[in-house]
Structures are given as structure tokens and as C-alpha cells.
């Protein structure tokens, strides 16, 4: 096993390229994943920003949804941004009919909670586990987390709403660090993946 973790980016739709760049900058080997067999050999997975309804439909249609759920249940580290956060939620407050999630974090999310595109915004955020200056939060038609279960830890809030959550090996943010050139949140995730590999090899 080489030292560098291999992290997939679910590449059905969305800002895949930016995540691949951010993961590479955070010292991981990053590769796009569209098919079930491409999940093999991954140490972790990022679910990117995009349209959560589209990603969910394509994941079911092309048979990646169930294998993904199984891997996440088995403890594979996952990180979701925006649409990815919605897909990692055990429950969506206002799902479209038939909209499924991968799950993994005991939380309820509200889609487009911060509003439509005209309300999309940038704001500085303190994120637990990210040292130094505040993180530049880029929120685009972003969801927020209505509530979390006992096992989920809130890492950041904006305006009284939960916007970053971690539960075990699963991480989710309402905002898009992949759009900023600041790779500290991706580095946090890559650290989670490394820690998981170390724990498994013991």
C-alpha cells in the first residue's frame, strides 16, 4: 500500500474538476468515478457540488447508489459539498419525489435553504478542525442543516444555521471550498482518509 491515499470524486455531474484539483493539492491521488466497478480501490470519496436531484437520479440509474451506500456503511471516508451534503444526509426535509440519498450522516437538510441564486453569497467562516484564518465560505443556492443526531458534530454555523458537519468518517459542508483555492478543508478530509487507512492496517 503506497502512502498516498486514492480518493474518488463522484463524476456524474457537477464541479468535479475543481475537487480533483483541490484533492491533488492536498496530496491525494484523485480520480473521477462514474461506474460501480470504479469504487474498487478507493480509500475515500468526494460527492461534489451540482444538482442533487440530477446526481441522485443518475446514481440510481447507473447502479452506483447501492454500492456507494454499502461502502459508506462500511466506513469509507466521504466528503460532500452542497449537493454532496444533501446526498450524505440521512434525511431531506423537502425531497423531490423519488429523490434518494446515500446517507451516512444523521442529519436533516433543507435544500436551497439560503435562497435562490440572487441570495447566493460569500462569508468568512470559522470551521472546527481548520486552523488559521477563517475559511472563505462560498454558498451557492446552498442547503443548511436543520438538525443533527447525537453522533454528528457541528463544525461550523452561519447566521445561526449549521453549515458543516462531521460524523465519524463522513464530512459535509453547505459551501464550496473547491471554488476558493484554499485547500484546508480538503486537507482535513485527506487527513481523515489517512487516519482511516492507518486504523485499518493495524
Amino acid at each position: 500500500m503506497s502512502d498516498t491515499p486514492v480518493i474518488g470524486v463522484l463524476a456524474l455531474q457537477g464541479d468535479v474538476r475543481e475537487h480533483l484539483v483541490a484533492l491533488a493539492a492536498a496530496d491525494a491521488v484523485a480520480r473521477p468515478v462514474r461506474r460501480p466497478d470504479e469504487l474498487a480501490g478507493l480509500d475515500g470519496l468526494v460527492v461534489p457540488g451540482g444538482e442533487s436531484t440530477t446526481i441522485s437520479k443518475l446514481a440510481v440509474l447507473f447502479g452506483v447508489m447501492d454500492p456507494l451506500r454499502a461502502r459508506v456503511r462500511d466506513g469509507m471516508p466521504v466528503y460532500g459539498t452542497c449537493a454532496g451534503m444533501i446526498l450524505l444526509a440521512d434525511k431531506i426535509l423537502d425531497p423531490r419525489s423519488g429523490q434518494e440519498t446515500i446517507g451516512g450522516i444523521d442529519m436533516i437538510v433543507r435544500r436551497n435553504a439560503f435562497g435562490r441564486q440572487n441570495e447566493s453569497f460569500e462569508a468568512a467562516l470559522d470551521v472546527k478542525g481548520v486552523a488559521g484564518d477563517p475559511v472563505e465560505g462560498v454558498f451557492i443556492r446552498a442547503p443548511w442543516v436543520e438538525s443533527v443526531g447525537a453522533d454528528a458534530e457541528v463544525l461550523a454555523e452561519h447566521d445561526g444555521h449549521i453549515v458543516a458537519v462531521r460524523q465519524g468518517n463522513a464530512l459535509a459542508t453547505s459551501f464550496h471550498p473547491e471554488l476558493t483555492g484554499d485547500h484546508r478543508v480538503h486537507a482535513l478530509f485527506v487527513d481523515m482518509v489517512r487516519a482511516d487507512r492507518t486504523a485499518e492496517s493495524l
Binding site: Q13, D15, E119, E122
Partner: peptide, 18 residues
């Protein structure tokens, strides 16, 4: 919080890719 920045405008289109 700042709305209507080039980053949220261009970033919106990034989410539509693919």
C-alpha cells in the same frame, strides 16, 4: 455576507457542469 460576487456567479455555472 456578500451577494452577486464574480465567484458566486461563475461558481453557479460550475455546479451545472456535465
Amino acid at each position: 455576507p456578500e451577494t452577486g460576487t464574480a465567484r458566486v456567479k461563475r461558481g453557479m455555472a460550475e455546479q451545472l457542469k456535465g
